[in-house]
Design a protein around this nucleic acid. Structure first.
Lengths: 240, 240
DNA sequence: GATGCGCAGATTGTATACGATCCTGTGTCC
DNA sequence: GGACACAGGATCGTATACAATCTGCGCATC
């Protein structure tokens, strides 16, 4: 079992006697998707997931419904849950939404960032670089997303931060499907520059950098008509 | 039974042989919240809701978890689900998020609106006025929210539209808690002006009007320290 | 040989059962 | 008379059981 490459949840389960284990399962699955261990289109059978995490289908169902709400998985009635495969259109929309939310949020963050905040961000970037050099592409991608979410948190806008979190998650799927270039280094440098602007409390610069960063990201995608490159013909037609 | 004023779901249940009835229950509850038939702080017992809709607790739980994800209800472990009571801070955040999303979306909508779209919006406004004159405050409020959501739909940005939908829902709770003036007429006039800008395809004006409309809404709230005016003393103290 | 039908296996949808936790009211002790 | 302890009831958290639905394979038919 555990062919999905998901860490058996024993360790995570110990972290707290929290009432709902559904959240734990959902978080593990979310993380697996962020790190591209679970790719778009993969089936998430309730029994299988339940066996891996040692919980009953009740819990798994709740977790999957959460992920479905975040649009990370698609639930097809009587067929099951699948890791979502954002269409080209959805991909664009995600980045358009991010372009609407994140630049202004970065400005707010720059105006409010404390030295501790900066230190946390710096640590994020360091870890991201380390993961990248270690060849752990998935981990680097997840950390890269966390950087954006952390900025939203610093801006002290929990509601917007939550939206950005959802968008970052979906971006991870978009990247899995439509990523073109293989070198993710441009990202890291963008984050370096953003960190500097935040440390300097330069809100206007941070806003501009974020806007540019998102445009870079978008332009590094291949959003032509291919709804999925390695998707099977059957699914492609069933979805077209 | 049915002391919650919720339409017994028999009719709604017939509408389609859809697989998940959880969605129906969630929609009914959402609508009840929008229309202020369910007020902030009300308890939503699983058994009670299940009995009203004629479904088991399994379904009710799924529905409540959905609403919790939309932050319309708060689930307190081992205590139950309650209609959310947004704090003053959350109230501000909701409107700040709307201020970030809706003006630009209104501009897009103005640039894309077809005559049919305009007709739909006009019908919305008409219904809103009718409900208002009939003294159906709740229905008017819900229609007012639908107006905003419809604009997002016209802008052809499903992702942003969903976010706006969530924010409008939460706004309904905010209004229930913090509304000051009794005359909601200003709203309607704002919508009239917006409709005209959209019909004229004047994107810049629509953006400005939307921004002003949201500011008006915000300023019509009483966001001082009062976490809730007509809350029962017990809950008020238990929450303070 | 290709196509349509039907049954078996597997998977999901929903309900119910049982254990755990929390609230409430009563009784006792200080 | 007031505060604490405890028991009863109610409600939630999770697992399991059963029913509905879908998928895939084999067979009959054209």
């Amino acid at each position: 079992m555990n062919e999905l490459g998901i860490p058996t949840a024993h360790a995570a389960g110990r972290e707290s006697g929290r009432a709902t284990r559904a959240r734990e399962v959902a978080d593990s699955l979310t993380r697996a998707i962020h790190e591209h261990r679970l790719g778009p289109g993969m089936k998430l059978s309730e029994d299988e997931v339940g066996e891996i995490f040692g919980v009953s289908r009740t819990i798994v169902r709740a977790a999957l419904q959460q992920l479905a709400h975040d649009q990370l998985v698609t639930i097809e009635p009587h067929r099951g849950a699948f890791v979502a495969q954002p269409s080209v259109r959805e991909a664009r929309e995600v980045f358009e939404a991010r372009a609407l939310l994140e630049p202004r949020t970065a400005r707010s963050a720059a105006e409010r960032a404390t030295p501790e905040d900066i230190a946390i961000l710096r640590r994020h970037i360091t870890q991201e670089h380390a993961a990248l050099h270690a060849g752990q592409d998935g981990a680097a991608l997840r950390l890269s997303g966390l950087f954006h979410i952390e900025i939203a948190r610093i801006a002290d806008q929990a509601t917007i931060a939550e939206f950005i979190g959802q968008l970052v998650s979906r971006s991870s799927l978009v990247i899995a499907l439509y990523w073109r270039r293989r070198n993710a280094l441009c990202e890291s440098h963008a984050h370096d520059a953003l960190l500097k602007a935040l440390a300097d409390r330069d809100g206007a610069l941070a806003e501009d950098l974020m806007k540019g960063h998102l445009l870079d990201l978008l332009s590094s995608l291949d959003l032509r008509e291919a709804p999925g490159q390695r998707r099977s013909l059957k699914e492609a037609l069933g979805r077209a």
